[in-house]
């Protein structure tokens, strides 16, 4: 008799814990180095830069601020992982491409080949019609710098790699305040599912303010 009571209590406790944890949606972490001041924590944010999109317009970090956005680094002639990344990014674009204050920035790490015109044709052939997915090109050194120091992913020229560059296959999720909130393997469908769930969580976070 006492035993059953004990078990019932335990079961009740577990149930309660479950309900509470369900009611509290998970909050995404903020990635990157932090600086803790006396009363405040400063988080790493995407630094300023200037690149051109597939229509030849200048895009800077100011255009990204105020948007929840996803970034990846790629190049149009990349034979290995980029095609899969683009297939997966198409899924993200399909789901969120028409949502307000959302954007996708695919940044080329082979800007000598990937000129504005090349990116324009690439995006059209990929079937991207909305404005929220932009393809960016510019100065090689500032792009590699932006990848490494801004988005904290690897990207470098390497003549032994397929296509001549090594780069991360990550999709990087950034919030409206330019803070990095997550990294997802853009070559794996299940990870991209996770990304799409987290975008929704992030949207809620801003709605709640």
């Amino acid at each position: 008799m006492r035993h059953t009571l004990k078990y019932n209590g335990l079961a009740l406790f577990l149930l309660l814990a479950l309900v509470i944890s369900c009611g509290n949606p998970k909050k995404l972490p903020v990635m990157g180095p932090k600086t803790v001041l006396e009363s405040d924590t400063l988080y790493h944010t995407i630094p300023d830069f200037e690149l051109k999109n597939q229509d030849g317009q200048i895009v800077s970090v100011g255009d990204m601020k105020g948007k929840i956005f996803v970034t990846d680094f790629f190049f149009t002639t990349c034979p290995s992982i980029c095609p899969i990344m683009k297939t997966q990014m198409l899924r993200v674009n399909e789901k969120f491409g028409s949502v307000q204050d959302f954007g996708i920035y695919s940044i080329s790490i082979d800007p000598r080949h990937d000129t504005v015109e090349v990116l324009k044709e690439y995006s059209e052939r990929l079937g991207v019609e909305n404005e929220s997915w932009q393809f960016l090109t510019g100065d090689l050194d500032s792009i590699l710098d932006l990848a490494q120091k801004g988005f904290l992913v690897s990207a470098a020229e390497d003549s032994t790699a397929p296509g001549g560059y090594i780069h991360s296959g990550a999709f990087i999720l950034v919030d409206k305040d330019l803070r990095i909130r997550g990294y997802y393997d853009g070559t794996k469908e299940s990870k991209v599912d996770e990304l799409m769930k987290d975008i929704a969580i992030l949207q809620k976070e801003y709605e709640g303010v």
């Binding site: 095609p83 683009k86 690439y122 059209e124 052939r125 990929l126 079937g127």
Partner: peptide, 8 residues
Amino acid sequence: GKGLGTLY
């Protein structure tokens, strides 16, 4: 085997 857009 369907390729991707008009890229592949």
